[in-house]
Amino acid sequence: MDAEALVHDYLGRLEAAAGSLPPSRRAELTGEVRQHIEMALAEAGGRDEVTVRNVLDRLGPPDEIVDAERGAEGPPPAWAAAQPAAPALPSGWGGTEIAAILLLTLGAVFLPIIGPLLGLIFVWASVRWTKRQKAVATGIVVILAILPIILLLGVRAGGVVTSGQL
């Protein structure tokens, strides 16, 4: 498959994934991503198949882009109009993201249980992570922190029953 066909195929998959978005938003998103690909290719200084594949890999699967777009439906478009220099796609660190990371790391050390829980609330409040990424982060915290506590309580309860029987 040549480079142009790869881009065409990617944009086709993006359009298909964006089927649930309103047509105007879908067209806008496709246009933005196409522009982003063109800029990345211009920066890379080549349009060979490897470069195009790298650029598309860095963009991520079309589903994830659509998920992020769907998650970002809340903020009004006036936000972008008020800051013309801001990038079109929401990226970078905002207060919510920094608070989430600080609560998950330092918060977990200094405020056990409350810190990570607050961190997860901030993670879910952010529009810059996809739903899947939020779910994976929540899964990590739940499996590593909460499950062992439940297992420990279970073992302790089992131990009490055993000693009671003796």
Binding site: G60, S91, L104, G107, P112, G119, L144
Partner: peptide
Amino acid sequence: MDVPLFVLLIPLAGILAAVYLVVAMLRRRS
């Protein structure tokens, strides 16, 4: 014995989740 495990796992879980989110954000930005 239970308390150190409990105390260690919560920060570890938070740090792992934070690392995952930071990597996800950096991958999206690049």
